[in-house]
Design a protein around this nucleic acid. Structure first.
Length: 512
RNA sequence: CGGGGCGUAGCUUAGCUUGGUAGAGCGCCUGGUUUGGGACCAGGAGGUCGCAGGUUCGAAUCCUGCCGCCCCGACCA
């Protein structure tokens, strides 16, 4: 039977949204669960998260943070303490109201009316309030500050329109929560952690990101300032890949985090919070995948290398398998960016072609075939996931092991270069309303083709203009880019919609 | 919550208009032939046709109600 030319159907250009779902499935990263909006993260996908966790955790510790863990349940009254905060999250909260089940009159299990909680508990959508309440107890003096804590946790936000990895009702993330003596120190923390995220995205996920500040309309509920990193994926939409919030004294006042200052006055602490989630995995898939599946950046790949023993004749099986395992062990002795290489031997007795395609779809950076002819020559057949799937090289085993780190780094660099090129090719400066609307309007309204991108345009700073653009085009201000990042972005001009004066360009895009 | 669509094997689905006791492809299992890029042959397992009720001699098919899912909108730090 003839196979399609691509492993994933439909292709990215034919139907990006459907392509994404098919890739997630074909790569065995995750699958929908029986609970609406929730996903089962499978080993190949969870391995990515573990690697992301491991690296970020190291970066957090290197910047002075420690891990702790706070409760999943938040008393309703805590959430209500910060007015904007509760407004922002009220519509998407899962609430626990009972603590016992019983068999009801109809014979079905039901929450026991007698077990109604005096105060409902909210399953955390984020932990500012419960952590704030805790910090209030911990802080007495300026000597108790700063508090620099992170937690790895799950949170629940009852999303109307879930999307695997990108927006699920329950997701995994980390949330950093810090409290400081001064505003300047808290601001510095907010910026520092944004920098950690940007570095991590670029160096480990091979995602070029723009850093910047959210407009008031897009700000975290209760924050004074929300900073973010914004990535572009291959349908040219933006993904907010991480955020860092300067919370001012809002949550300190709500939670009563007070301390006696150096001058013997009662002061409220200045707090921050910052987080990234399993959404990073969705971003990664959409940014790097191709029509044959996902392509994992080596630095976070679940496995770096998969070894595929080729066993055409039964009498060579034992020798080939032994050689495969020996090669795997040699590779595992290689330290790649501080950790042993992650190597898998796929000795399943299925056809070689099928096996190869599985690993292509799963995006393993390197596939290594080893068969009887290689044994004779002492070589291996190596295929890179960032190259055409038939393209192979045939280094000696020794050379392969000696150069494998460089090869992986080269794949990593290629992915970053490709993603950067793609983003830059679709980031444009726009100076007229006509061009702006044309840029974000698909040719085919019924079945929109991949269009648009990032538009750098002037804005008068008004929420009304922001609202109008959102209404007309579903386009939002992704961020006010960090000064110095985009050449010329800080030159003054005139609002692309109203023609009023504007101090600088901001980044517009459709987003997930 | 409003508008539209759909529920048939693990997945994709045919059959429904015109009622007659369920078929295919992929996947899975067994045996054989194969094997350096998605193999082939033969045999086999697997379905209360979303649920409940109604009409009928007879319902996957017609009717009613319910449930679930998908798409569009609303919503989405």
């Amino acid at each position: 039977m003839s196979q399609p030319t691509t492993a994933i159907s439909p292709t990215r250009t034919a139907d990006f949204s459907e392509w994404y779902q098919q890739v997630v499935r074909a790569a065995e990263l995750a699958e929908p669960s029986d609970v609406r909006g929730c996903m089962v993260i499978k080993p190949w996908g969870y391995g990515l998260w573990e690697n992301i966790q491991h690296t970020l955790d190291g970066m957090f510790k290197a910047t002075g943070h420690k891990n702790a863990y706070f409760p999943l349940f938040i008393p309703l009254s805590y959430l209500a303490k910060e007015a904007q905060h509760v407004d922002g999250f009220a519509k998407e909260c899962a609430v626990v109201t009972h603590h016992r089940l019983e068999v009801g009159p109809d014979g079905n299990l039901r929450p026991a009316p007698s077990s109604l909680l005096a105060e409902p508990l909210v399953i955390r959508p984020t932990s500012e309030t419960i952590i704030g309440a805790t910090y209030a107890k911990w802080v007495q003096s300026y000597r108790d500050l700063p508090i620099l804590i992170n937690q790895w946790a799950n949170v629940v936000r009852w999303e109307m329109r879930p999307r695997v990895f990108l927006r699920t009702a329950e997701f995994l993330w980390q949330e950093g929560h810090t409290a400081h003596e001064t505003e300047a120190e808290a601001l510095e923390e907010t910026n520092k952690m944004l920098g950690v995220y940007a570095t991590f995205a670029k160096e480990h996920l091979a995602l070029p990101v723009y850093t910047g500040e959210k407009s008031a309309g897009e700000r975290f509920p209760g924050a004074v300032q929300t900073l973010c990193i914004e990535a572009m994926v291959q349908d040219r939409k933006a993904v907010q890949a991480g955020t860092s919030h300067f919370l001012g004294q809002n949550f300190a006042k709500a939670s009563d985090i007070k301390f006696l200052s150096r001058t013997n006055t009662q002061e409220f602490a200045w707090t921050t919070s910052w987080g990234v989630s399993t959404r990073l995995i969705g971003t990664l898939i959409m940014a790097h995948g191709d029509d044959d599946g996902v392509i994992l950046p080596p630095r976070v790949a679940t496995s770096h290398i998969v070894i595929l023993p080729v066993v055409p004749k039964e009498e060579t099986r034992a020798a080939v398998l032994e050689a495969a395992h020996n090669l795997a062990n040699s590779l595992r002795a290689v330290i790649y960016h501080g950790s042993p290489l992650r190597v898998e031997v796929d000795a399943r007795d299925i056809s070689g072609g099928t096996k190869s395609w599985e690993w292509i779809k799963k995006g393993a950076p390197l596939r290594v075939e080893i068969g009887p002819r290689d044994l004779e020559k002492g070589s291996v057949a190596v295929a890179r996931r960032d190259r055409a799937h038939k393209e192979k090289t045939f280094p000696s085993m020794g050379d392969f092991v000696a150069q494998v780190s460089d090869t992986l780094d080269d794949i990593q660099a290629t992915l970053l270069a490709r993603a950067t090129e793609y983003r830059d090719a679709h980031t444009v400066r726009i100076d007229s309303k006509e061009d702006f609307y044309a840029f974000f309007t698909p040719q085919n309204a019924d079945k929109p083709e991949v269009h648009g991108g990032f538009a750098l345009a002037h804005w008068n700073g008004s929420a009304a203009v922001e609202e109008q653009i959102k209404e007309d085009l579903k386009v939002t201000i992704r961020c006010i880019p960090t000064p110095g990042q985009i050449p010329g972005a800080e030159e003054p001009g005139f609002c692309v919609i109203t023609g009023e004066p504007s101090p600088r360009r901001v980044l517009f895009a459709k987003s997930y």
